[in-house]
C-alpha cells in the first residue's frame, strides 16, 4: 500500500446507487483522496499474525426458538411507502 490506489469515484458511486452532482464530485474527490492517503498508515502496520475483530465483544451462539409472533397489518406494512396499490409496494417496472 505504498502508493495511493486508484480511487474511481464514478465506479463507487454507481455501486452505492448515489447521484453526485458535478460540484459534489469536484469537492469529494480531493477530500476523499486526502483521507485515503491518510489511511495508508494502516498499511505500514505488521498484522501478519493478528486476527481481525468483527465484533466489539465476542459472543457466540445467540439463537432464537422457532416461534412465530405478531405481524403488521397490511396497511401498517405499507403505510410509509411512497407508492402502493392493492396492499403492495409500487415501483417502476423492474426489467429482469
Amino acid at each position: 500500500m505504498a502508493n495511493t490506489p486508484d480511487f474511481d469515484i464514478d465506479y463507487v458511486a454507481k455501486l452505492a446507487r448515489l447521484d453526485l452532482s458535478v460540484e459534489e464530485k469536484a469537492q469529494f474527490e480531493p477530500q476523499l483522496g486526502k483521507i485515503i492517503e491518510y489511511f495508508q498508515q494502516l498499511g505500514d502496520v505488521d498484522t501478519d499474525h493478528v486476527e481481525p475483530t468483527a465484533h466489539a465483544n465476542p459472543i457466540y451462539d445467540v439463537l432464537r426458538e422457532d416461534e412465530p409472533q405478531a405481524v403488521f397489518e397490511q396497511n401498517v406494512a405499507i403505510a410509509n411507502a411512497p407508492a402502493s396499490q392493492a396492499g403492495q409496494v409500487v415501483v417502476p417496472k423492474v426489467i429482469e
Binding site: 500500500m1 455501486l15 483521507i35 502496520v45 486476527e51 468483527a54
Partner: peptide
Amino acid sequence: RRIILGTFALSSGYHDAYYLKAQKVRT
C-alpha cells in the same frame, strides 16, 4: 462522503487492504 468512502473500502480489490486491515488494527 462516508457512503462513498465505505463502499470503496469494501469494494472488490480494496476490501483486504482497507476493511480487513482496519479490523486487524482494531484487534
